[in-house]
Simulated scan of single mutants.
Amino acid sequence: MSERDAARQARLQEDLLDTLDEELEMEIDDHLLGGGEGISDEARETRRMYFRELFRLQGELVKLQDWVIETGHRLVVIFEGRDAAGKGGAIKRITQRLNPRVCRVAALPAPTNRERTQWYFQRYVAHLPAAGEIVLFDRSWYNRAGVERVMGFCTDEEYDEFFRSVPEFEKMLARSGIQIVKYWFSVTDEEQEVRFQSRIADPLKQWKLSPMDLESRRRWEAYTQAKEAMLERSHIPESPWWVVLADDKKRARLNCIHHLLGQVPYHPVPHSPVSLPERVHHAEYIRHPVPEEMIVPNVY
């Protein structure tokens, strides 16, 4: 096996471990972390550190959520980046322990024929937060600066009009009290290839690969040019861009969450002590049995 093949095999193994980590994160503990065949002590300790820090940051996100509710703050977080850059993984870790009624994800599909005739920003406006809400855009109105530009889904006139409008649109949102934080997840050419190959090899991940994703791989350089133009033309004081170096997915998640927490002036909100009330019993209450045919079989 050549050095390149060996390196690729090692990266695929790392990606498999990362997938396993994703499934373990909700119930991980020191006992589980002690397992794992073929993992070096250094790698195991790195995973321990990752989980400890992730849980700590998620605890801070809960405090942020409480503050947002208390103050009526409105927060929009935009996640952009190449396919397989890790946007979805970061979003999952942010929302994992938050109330979905407070923190929700907006991942809009391709526009309908009707939406294509509307003001470009119109379908996004409906998803903006009310007081006490956080909205995470998994891709956003910057589709026009990226995929639509590269794939030819918009005209040159529509593209130029977007960049004339988007700074004013975001300034208007900022003046109305909506905070906007914009992240670009950046991966190298080589890392994206590994992640695409991993998706091709894993039946549980193949659904993530669309024909558009595969075409984006071929048009890497066109996407680079579009990204550079986007960052240059829409980086404004009211809503600056922040670039997350995402070749290491775990570090990228931690760095993104840590940075996001630093963008919001939150503080712990005091809560009244919670006590469980006594269950009320009524002598005349009779619980009716559930019919046997309605019970899910105990297969496990």
Rank of each mutant, 00 (worst) to 15 (best):
R199T: 02
E190R: 02
D247F: 03
A226F: 01
D202L: 07
T224N: 13
S275M: 08
P240K: 09
H235Y: 06
C256N: 11
P240Y: 01
R233L: 15
S272Q: 07
S198V: 13
S272W: 03
P265G: 07
I257G: 08
R253H: 03
L260G: 12
D202E: 09
A252I: 13
A283E: 12
P203G: 03
A226S: 12
K208N: 09
R279D: 07
E278W: 06
E190F: 01
P270Q: 12
H281Y: 07
F196A: 00
L204I: 15
E221A: 13
R195P: 11
A222M: 03
L204S: 11
E278I: 06
Q197S: 14
E278R: 15
K205P: 01
G262N: 11
K227E: 01
W241Y: 04
F185L: 13
E228I: 09
I257M: 15
S186I: 11
L254Q: 06
E215T: 00
Q263A: 11
I236H: 10
R217S: 04
D248A: 08
L231Q: 12
T224G: 12
P203S: 03
L276D: 13
D213A: 04
Q192E: 10
P277A: 09
I236M: 11
F196Y: 06
W241K: 02
L261D: 02
A246V: 14
Q263V: 03
R217I: 04
H267W: 01
A246P: 13
E190T: 06
P237W: 05
P270A: 08
P270L: 07
K227H: 04
P270C: 04
M230W: 02
S272D: 13
S210F: 06
M230G: 08
I200G: 01
H259T: 11
Q192S: 10
T224I: 12
S186W: 03
R217Y: 04
Y266Q: 02
R219W: 01
V280A: 14
R253M: 07
L214Y: 03
R287D: 10
L209F: 02
E191Y: 05
F196W: 06
E228F: 03
S186H: 11
L231A: 02
I236A: 05
W220Q: 04
E238C: 00
G262E: 06
H271N: 15
S272G: 03
D248W: 00
Y266E: 10
P270E: 13
V264Q: 04
A252V: 09
H271D: 15
E284W: 13
L209K: 00
S272H: 05
M212W: 10
R217Q: 08
D247Y: 05
D213E: 04
R199N: 03
A283P: 01
A252R: 10
H281W: 05
I236Y: 05
M230D: 08
E221L: 11
N255Q: 07
E284K: 11
L245D: 15
Q263N: 08
V280L: 05
T224W: 01
R218E: 15
D247K: 02
R251P: 00
G262K: 13
P270F: 12
S272T: 09
Q225E: 12
